[in-house]
């Protein structure tokens, strides 16, 4: 089924969060103000991204941008290695001792991240996720955990209104998520975020955590929003009362059952009402 819409209604952060949690594989294409960007994912991990038209020998440009190749070197490579895939080009540069494998991995990773972080600033744009569509085998793909990407992208979200809307109530508590793949050690946290993490406990409200760490409402919202989107923590809802009796009232025009009368009905009566409803609807 299609996964498409507008960033105006469903933000980059929400999309990445969905792709991460649903462990999706495929390519997300976003178009915004005449620009186009693509991000590819394998089982919920970001593996590749580029913006604009993909040029041949993309790697040479990436290495130049990362300061690993001079402009002249990049130009010569682009001319001489025409028709060579990024993977082949990478092998060639390593074998000739121009560059190390680590240089390539770091540069490609940074390029992917820079591309994705730009997308966080796009307030609107049409998006479409094509399941199972992946870059051709000649591309260099590097798996990157989306939790960290979402955290950093969220840090760059400057819009107070968005944070305000997403987290209107500071008098709620947080707890660490039970998701087994959420591990603090895999996520890069700032000093401030670590301080907040140390106070995460269902007994502490977000407002109390902010006070304890001398953080403004905006700062605490930004930090908590990032942690929520990364799936590190979740909101603790106020304790719900015990299940109420199925409210059984009287037909209009006759005496109405009061809440007290409804509560006084035995579980057997309530169950009988529900079972009768099930039988009736099954028979419709």
């Amino acid at each position: 089924m299609a996964l498409k819409g507008n960033l105006r209604d469903f933000s980059t952060t929400q999309l990445l969060n969905l792709i991460n949690l649903a462990r999706k594989t495929g390519t997300l294409t976003i178009q915004h103000d005449g620009e186009s960007a693509q991000m590819s994912f394998r089982e919920g991990k970001l593996i590749y991204a580029f913006m604009g038209e993909e040029a041949e020998n993309h790697l040479a440009q990436i290495l130049h941008n990362a300061g690993k190749l001079s402009e002249e070197q990049a130009r010569i490579i682009q001319v001489r290695a025409k028709g060579t895939s990024d993977k082949q080009l990478g092998h060639m540069l390593i074998q000739r001792g121009h560059i190390t494998q680590s240089d390539i991995i770091q540069s490609v990773r940074q390029n992917v991240l820079d591309t994705v972080y730009k997308l966080f600033t796009w307030g609107e744009g049409l998006f479409r996720f094509d399941a199972n569509k992946l870059p051709s085998p000649g591309h260099i793909t590097i798996p990157i955990d989306l939790e960290s990407v979402i955290m950093e992208g969220s840090r760059r979200l400057k819009e107070w209104e968005i944070l305000q809307e997403e987290l209107p109530d500071l008098d709620i508590s947080l707890r660490f998520t039970d998701r087994p793949d959420a591990r603090l050690r895999n996520i890069n946290l700032t000093v401030e975020e670590w301080r907040v993490v140390s106070f995460v406990n269902p007994r502490n409200t977000i407002r109390q955590i902010a006070r304890a760490n001398n953080l403004s409402d905006f700062e605490i919202r930004r930090i908590v929003y990032g942690m929520l989107q990364a799936g590190l923590v979740e909101v603790v809802r106020p304790a719900r009362p015990q299940v109420q009796a199925p409210p059984v009232g009287r037909q209009a025009g006759s005496k109405q059952d009061t809440p007290k009368e409804i509560e006084q009905q035995s579980p057997a009566v309530k169950r009988s009402v529900v079972v009768r409803l099930i039988d009736r609807i099954r028979g419709l």
């Binding site: 015990q242 299940v243 199925p246 579980p267 169950r271 529900v274 079972v275 409803l277 099930i278 609807i281």
Partner: peptide, 15 residues
């Protein structure tokens, strides 16, 4: 509607 009613039965069992 049936799934909702089944959920209500489950809640009654828990209660």
């Amino acid at each position: 509607l049936l799934e909702l009613l089944y959920s209500i039965l489950e809640e009654l069992d828990k209660a």
